[in-house]
Design a binder for these strands. Structure first.
Lengths: 185, 185
DNA sequence: ACAACATTTTGATTTAGGTCAAAATTTAAA
DNA sequence: TTTAAATTTTGACCTAAATCAAAATGTTGT
């Protein structure tokens, strides 16, 4: 809980009332590894903050499990497309380690935005951060060799390559598990 | 000009004063095809709205010109990484048709955000929209065949495949121009 | 400590799409 | 218009990485 407030305060200052209301609204859950938070076809109702553990988003393509991204501690995650546009998700979200997640629902955020307009700024800033990361990471990504892709991930997000398993990392990078294993040798 | 105000009003309502200030601050430029708006190494100072024409972001990789994205009319664009983090860009931005661009600087936006906090909401919403688009488009993208990639782009962004040239589209999709030409046959 | 399962590695083979080169077409400019 | 420049197409060849298959590790629960 305190982690999440600290996280928010990195971006904006919080009034006493706002802080109290967030504390009251927040949902904290302790989950075992492998717990599925969102399934394909369901609309993602929550914006999660990872206080502990790692979480993965993935989907099935031709029967194969394809990782979309792996999120470490102290980051926020949701199925952006589904959460923002209020549409059924095409992806799954699951914990990849025992985890503690702190979350608020979409509706709670809308209410908070109206009640404490300062929070709009927080909303904007975390999106800016995500966008800056994505934007940078994927620039020219396809024209890298499998090895360069792996090296880029290791440089930009070392936590991921350290903690996630080979198959997950490989599909996230868009390469086969066998190739990644050979690269790592 | 009016296009841009209309665009903003799709997301939030504007007070008289705010509207007047935006009108006063805005920079409108009419540019010929091929005009370079941002170069690698320079920090991107502006958030652009495309009132007319198309604009392309690209960078050089092993001496080759790689398109990152192509933006049509009535969209906003900037080098997100550079603009947000205030760091030198790794990319170029250029007009790919004769264009009319409406823009405000980073600093002007910061001032506007402070003066008219309602605009924070606009900032958040356009980022949400961008994020939802990106998020959806790139999901499982690497595991598509060259043909499927092209079809996805055609479905999601028909304007791009209609108006941009082959080489630009190919590098944007991460495939060679020759392959794209064969796909299109 | 063992069984059952999940993950990673290694080897052999195949293939989609890249590269190189040159011709054909389209567009622009003088 | 005619020429020059840019863009797209076509052809022949090649390579990085996918696929298939099986062995070798590692991890988990009982």
């Amino acid at each position: 809980m305190y982690d999440f407030l600290t996280y928010i305060k990195q971006y904006i200052s919080l009034s006493e009332v706002a802080e109290r209301e967030i504390k009251k609204s927040v949902f904290i859950e302790e989950l075992p590894k492998g717990h599925v938070l969102l399934r394909e076809g369901k609309t993602c109702e929550r914006l999660y903050f990872i206080a502990k553990g790692t979480v993965r988003t993935y989907h099935y393509q031709d029967g194969k499990d394809i990782t979309y991204w792996i999120y470490p501690e102290n980051t926020v995650l949701t199925s952006w497309h589904s959460y923002i546009l209020r549409k059924p998700a095409s992806e799954y979200i699951e914990t990849t380690e025992d985890a503690v997640l702190i979350s608020l629902s979409y509706n709670q955020w809308q209410e908070l935005y109206l009640k404490y307009p300062k929070l709009e700024r927080f909303g904007r800033l975390i999106l800016e951060e995500q966008m800056a990361l994505l934007d940078d990471f994927f620039k020219g990504y396809y024209f890298l060799s499998a090895k360069e892709k792996y090296e880029l991930l290791t440089t930009a997000f070392p936590t991921i390559t350290q903690r996630a398993n080979l198959g997950h990392i490989a599909s996230m990078l868009g390469i086969s598990q066998e190739t990644l294993s050979r690269i790592r040798k």
